[in-house]
Nucleic acid binder design. Structure first.
Lengths: 178, 178
DNA sequence: ACCTGAACACCGTTCAAGT
DNA sequence: ACCTGAACACCGTTCAAGT
C-alpha cells in the first residue's frame, strides 16, 4: 500500500499498474488481486489510510502548539512535503481530478478526507475569530483547503516548490489564512 | 480535437483512449495516428488550442467591462462553466495533476496557460491597486489562479457546483480577489 | 491462506497495404 | 493525402492449479 500510494501521488490512479506495483513489491500481479480484488478496492483502501494518517498528524500538530499561525504553517507544510517528495500531489487531490474514473465508494472517501481537513481547519479558525458563526468558519475552512490544494496543483505543474511558497505567502498577506 | 478535449477534461489524459476517441469521431484508431503520431502530440495540440481559446475569451471579457469586480466574476465564470458541463475540469489543471505522465513539451504548454492567466489577472489587479509593484501584482495573480483551480478541483470532488460558488465567495470576502 | 501461469479483452503504437 | 487491418507488448481481471 505504501508503494501504491507513492505511485498514485506521482502519476495518478489511471497510471498505476498492477504489474508495475507487483514488480516493486516482489510478487506477481495476480497475487495483488488476492488482497485487493479490483483496482478500485485498492483505491478505497489507499484513500482511507491516507485520511487516517492525516488525522493522526493533525492531532499531533494541534497538541504541539495552540497558536493559529503556527498551526496553519504546519498545515501548509503537509502539502509542501508532498511536493518536496519528488513533486508529488495530495492523494485525494489526485483522486478528485480523476473522479470520473472512480467508483462512488472512492469518491466517498475523498469527501471524508475533505471533511477531516475542514473540521480541523474550522477549529483553528475558531480560536482566531471566536465571534464567527460555525457556518462561516466552515466556509472559510473549505476555502483554505481549496486554495492550498490549488497552490499544490499549480506549483506541481511548474515543478517548483518556491511557487507554492510564494502562493501561500500571498494567501496570508491577502488575509485568507492566519 | 473537440471530442478529445472533452474526454480529457472529464476523465483525464491517461483515461483517454485512441480507440474510444476514434469510435466517437467515426474513424479507426490507427487513423488518428496519422494526424497525431503519438498520444503526446495530441496532448500538446489540445493544450495549445485550449490556451488560445482562453486568451480570445479573456480579451472579449476585458473589452466588455473595465470594472475589476465584473471582470473577476467573468473569470470565475470560466472555471464554473467547466463544472457545469458535466462536472469537467480545466484541461491544464488536469494535465498539471498528470504531469509525470506527460512530455516536457506538454508541461511547457501548461506553463504558457498559467502565464496567460497570470498576465491577464495582473492587468485586472493593476486597475485596482495602481501603486502595487509589478512583482506583487504577479504574485497575487498567481495566487488567484491557484485558488480558483483549487476551488474547481475540490468542488469537482464534491460533485457540487455550489461548493465552488461558496468558495469563490469566501475568497472574495477574505480579500483575496476583487 | 497466499501465490502463480495462462487466458481474456483492452490499450498505444507501428507498418505494410489500400484508395 | 488519408485511411485501414493486423501485429506487437502492454493493461486489469479471472480462474484453475499449486503450496
Amino acid at each position: 500500500m505504501a508503494a501504491a500510494r507513492l505511485m498514485v501521488q506521482a502519476r495518478g490512479y489511471n497510471a498505476l499498474s498492477f504489474r508495475e506495483l507487483a514488480k516493486e513489491v516482489g510478487i506477481k500481479s495476480a497475487s495483488i488481486h488476492y488482497h485487493f480484488p479490483t483496482k478500485d478496492d485498492l483505491a478505497v483502501a489507499l484513500a482511507r489510510r491516507y485520511t487516517e494518517d492525516l488525522v493522526l498528524h493533525l492531532q499531533n500538530v494541534a497538541s504541539k502548539s495552540k497558536d493559529a499561525h503556527e498551526r496553519m504553517t504546519a498545515y501548509a507544510e503537509i502539502f509542501r512535503g508532498a511536493l518536496l517528495r519528488s513533486n508529488r500531489m495530495c492523494l485525494c487531490g489526485m483522486l478528485a481530478a480523476e473522479r470520473d474514473d472512480l467508483s462512488p465508494q472512492v469518491q466517498e472517501e475523498v469527501q471524508k478526507f475533505n471533511a477531516a481537513n475542514v473540521a480541523w481547519l474550522s477549529e483553528v479558525l475558531a480560536a482566531c475569530d471566536p465571534h464567527q458563526s460555525p457556518d462561516a468558519l466552515e466556509r472559510r475552512a473549505f476555502a483554505i483547503l481549496s486554495a492550498v490544494e490549488g497552490a499544490q496543483l499549480v506549483a506541481r505543474g511548474c515543478g517548483d516548490v518556491r511557487v507554492y511558497d510564494r502562493t501561500i505567502d500571498a494567501y496570508r498577506s491577502a488575509g485568507l489564512m492566519p
